[in-house]
């Protein structure tokens, strides 16, 4: 555990909690892609199946349980409790175009051809693109609530901090995981355009809106 890894995890946790609180307090999931949230629930479920097979630390177990619990709570709020506020017409990204290729890639490129390892690999690949329905929705409506942009910033920052963590681990522990690194770079790059808008607009007190 190093400082980048810890702040990355906390940034991830902050993102998840910001989104849950935003929906809960406003009693609305307007502007939130339910599809992205379903993909994140799938990501956590397929990655953390090792909760059942191996114990690493109290920290590791509790974070995994919190991430999974929050992911399902978010999906529940969007599709059940506040379903009436869900903006399904604008959430029109075709997720099968992500899930199917990612599933194929996980079967072809992995560390070990075993059930849990392929699911872990699938979750890493899927996470790298799971935000696309949300970004697509924002590009379609041309705007995002400020609280939603804070969520996206924390979520993007988390993987960027993990990249620094992997550089650290490469130098100080001679450890690297090529699958996680390549997927993590892809994931971070997808946020770059958003990071630019966040810094130039939201941090200066303006609402994030895209030119028509």
């Amino acid at each position: 555990m190093n400082v980048f890894r810890l702040t990355g995890d906390l940034s991830h946790l902050a993102a998840i909690i910001i989104l849950l609180l935003k929906i809960w307090k406003s009693r609305s999931c307007a502007g939130i892609s339910g599809k992205s949230q379903i993909l994140f629930a799938i990501v956590f479920t397929t990655r953390y199946l090792d909760l059942l097979t191996s114990f690493i630390s109290i920290y590791n177990t509790s974070m995994k349980v919190i991430y999974i619990g929050c992911a399902y709570a978010t999906v529940y709020l969007i599709y059940m409790k506040f379903r009436a506020t869900y903006d399904g017409n604008h959430d029109s990204f075709r997720v099968e175009f992500l899930v199917v290729p990612v599933g194929g890639l996980a079967v072809l490129v992995n560390h070990d051809f075993s059930f849990l390892e392929i699911l872990w690999t699938f979750s890493i690949y899927l996470e790298s693109v799971a935000i696309l329905p949300q970004l697509f929705m924002i590009s379609k409506t041309g705007e995002a609530e400020t609280i939603t942009t804070h969520y996206l910033f924390c979520l993007g920052l988390y993987r960027a901090l993990y990249l620094l963590n992997w550089i650290w681990r490469f130098y100080f522990e001679s450890f690297f995981d090529m699958i996680a690194i390549v997927a993590g770079v892809v994931q971070t790059v997808l946020y770059c355009d958003f990071f630019y808008l966040y810094i130039t607009k939201v941090l200066k007190g303006k609402k994030l809106s895209l030119p028509a």
């Binding site: 991830h12 191996s54 630390s57 590791n60 560390h111 993990y162 450890f175 996680a180």
Partner: peptide, 10 residues
């Protein structure tokens, strides 16, 4: 093992 190592991360 290397495989066990990456499982430490979230």
């Amino acid at each position: 093992s290397e495989e066990a190592k990456h499982k430490d991360e979230l």
